[in-house]
């Protein structure tokens, strides 16, 4: 099938196996227990998620990937508490949570910086709401702004920043609250390819520096493999867990690994799971736009 012979995506080098073993010993930060979500629809009920369970351990990078309509956005919104599950429970460090809270930071796909606040004040927002004095909040916020490399833009307004910069501020704003988990809903989906690549490496750097567990939604296979320790693959109609993949690509990650055999093996497996009919082209109805005879003669 493949042009080059790929190893099994389940084969792990000793270092990776070791890391995975260590990961399994860490405490569970966020857990979803058999989440089911049904929406009322015209034909009775529509099941968006069916019995989805997951857990993310401390400092793990867990990606959730799946074809469109698999309910991955619904899932992360349930984890954040922005929507409620029809059945099942969300646990944060063993406690059930049902409403949004500062211990679960979230970065959205769209730009959700408050346009009336400067960058600094945006990052201070959660801290002030949490009851920190303005002075403390400001010095705390500046540290996070410096970490995402935007210190010189602290007094700018969001509309003066590029898309990638806005998402960096959004990450700083979520992290400033010291959340236990960072939920990211296709955060780089609206960015162009180069900016997205740069943002991915920023995110990995931040993840290495901060004690944070990341749950990351994406539909980009490369992005999922490049960033994650483990990838939860969902399938659509209804949204169910298809497979949980441990990524055999060694850490720390670098863009050079995009062409490594382990990387490609995982990607090939994801392709299989997400586009099961690959190989058979979707046939479009053909329209005759020109007369074939004209071109031949």
């Amino acid at each position: 099938m493949h042009a080059i012979e790929l190893p099994s995506y389940k084969e792990q080098s000793p270092e990776v196996a070791d890391r995975m073993a260590r990961l399994r010993e860490r405490p569970v930060i966020m857990e979803a227990r058999s989440i089911t979500k049904r929406f009322p629809s015209e034909q009775g009920e529509n099941t968006a998620l069916l019995n989805v369970s997951l857990h993310a351990r401390r400092r793990e990078f867990l990606s959730i990937i799946g074809p469109s309509g698999c309910g991955k956005s619904t899932l992360i919104r349930i984890l954040a508490g922005l929507e409620s599950a029809t059945e099942g429970a969300v646990l944060l460090e063993g406690k059930v949570v049902s409403v949004p809270g500062p211990e679960r930071g979230m970065v959205f796909q769209g730009y959700t910086l408050f346009p009336w606040l400067t960058i600094k004040r945006n990052v201070m927002f959660g801290l002030q709401v949490g009851g920190l004095s303005d002075m403390l909040a400001e010095s705390e916020a500046m540290q996070w702004i410096e970490m995402v490399g935007l210190a010189d833009f602290a007094d700018h307004y969001p509309h003066q920043l590029s898309g990638g910069m806005k998402q960096r501020v959004a990450i700083a704003r979520a992290l400033a609250n010291r959340p236990r988990v960072l939920l990211m809903d296709e955060p780089f989906g609206a960015l162009d390819a180069q900016t997205r690549a740069r943002m991915q490496s920023y995110l990995l750097q931040i993840w290495r520096k901060v004690d944070i567990t990341i749950i990351f939604i994406t539909h980009d296979l490369d992005e999922a493999v490049y960033l994650s320790d483990r990838i939860l693959v969902l399938k659509a109609n209804p949204g169910e867990v298809a497979e949980l993949i441990e990524v055999p690509v060694p850490q720390p990650r670098s863009p050079k690994q995009f062409l490594s055999l382990e990387f490609l093996a995982v990607k090939a497996r994801l392709e299989e799971l997400i586009h099961p009919d690959s190989g058979v082209e979707d046939e479009l109805p053909m329209l005759r736009l020109t007369c074939v005879d004209d071109e031949v003669t």
């Binding site: 949004p100 979230m106 769209g110 949490g130 939920l183």
Partner: peptide
Amino acid sequence: ALIEAAQTLGARGATLVRR
């Protein structure tokens, strides 16, 4: 989305309306 973002940052009730 702005309201949801504020909620995930810990704002609710009157604070959410005011801020």
